[in-house]
């Protein structure tokens, strides 16, 4: 059984605005002089998740909506295990396959095929399964001759197709996708829906962030609305989307400030 849980999770990003905040010598000087010798001040923190709890089990397909900067991506990164929460707990059972940032984790100097092979080895895919997996990714990505060129030559759409193909093909009971799917063209969108749905037979838990009500209805069977690092609404995707579309434009400062 796949399981992914967050329990009152807090995430704060340190923001280093002045160069001296990333200097060991400044830090040592500040300590040694008990703060007399300070320049640039201490780092500021962005409190990106403020006590988020959620629990996903087999069959749960979660859509995350909310305005820019509301914590959607941070939440996905925390679910994916990339960000470690400073407070709260994360519980996970099952392998995670994720696509968080476009082309991230791909080596621009390697060709598409070399990148696929490299990731297969990193994820310890048995050698006998690699050719089939590679074929699936290539078939999905439809890169033609480009699959044998370094990925630094790819357009963002091509990177997306390769990354998404990999995320779908690598084994995982939990599939986590940031809003990147929105970047593809119409043909890709159709194909992505088809293949993602097919992946639901093996991926037992799915979570994605999106800005599209259609995608939300298409992929998800439950939705949360993030606002200023908190979950402000939860429920059936269409209903949450309707409330979001209705309320969000009226409260530019964020719904949690208004309540």
């Amino acid at each position: 059984m796949a399981l992914l849980e967050l329990n009152s999770v807090h995430v704060r990003y340190p923001v280093f605005s002045a160069g001296s905040q990333q200097s060991l010598f400044t830090a040592v000087a500040r300590r040694a002089t008990f703060g007399v010798l300070t320049r640039g001040g201490a780092a500021t923190y962005v409190h990106a998740l403020r006590g988020v709890s959620l629990s996903l089990r087999d069959g749960d397909r979660l859509g995350i909506i909310g305005r820019n900067g509301s914590g959607k991506s941070t939440l996905l990164k925390t679910l994916a295990g990339i960000n470690w929460p400073q407070e709260g707990r994360r519980v996970v059972q099952g392998r995670i396959s994720s696509i968080i940032a476009l082309g991230a984790g791909l080596d621009g100097e390697k060709t598409g095929v070399q990148n696929i092979n490299f990731l297969c080895r990193l994820f310890d895919i048995p050698a006998r399964d690699v050719p089939a997996l590679r074929e699936r990714v290539i078939e999905f990505a439809e890169l033609g001759e480009y699959i044998n060129l370094p990925t630094r030559t790819y357009s963002s759409g091509m990177l997306l197709r390769l990354s998404y193909g990999l995320a779908l093909a690598l084994p995982g009971e939990i599939l986590i996708v940031d809003e990147v799917i929105g970047a593809g063209d119409a043909v890709f969108q159709r194909k992505a829906v088809e293949h993602t749905r097919a992946a639901f037979s093996t991926a037992k838990v799915f979570a994605m962030a999106t800005h599209s009500g259609e995608a939300l209805a298409e992929y998800c069977n439950q939705a949360i609305w993030m606002d200023r690092g908190r979950i402000v609404d939860y429920g059936e995707p269409r209903e949450v989307w309707a409330r979001y579309a209705d309320l969000a434009p009226r409260f530019p400062e964020g719904i949690s400030a208004a309540r």
């Binding site: 994720s98 968080i100 940032a101 991230a104």
Partner: peptide, 9 residues
């Protein structure tokens, strides 16, 4: 960086 920010390896 790329791998650390993309995968939970």
């Amino acid at each position: 960086q790329g791998l650390l920010l993309s995968y939970d390896l």
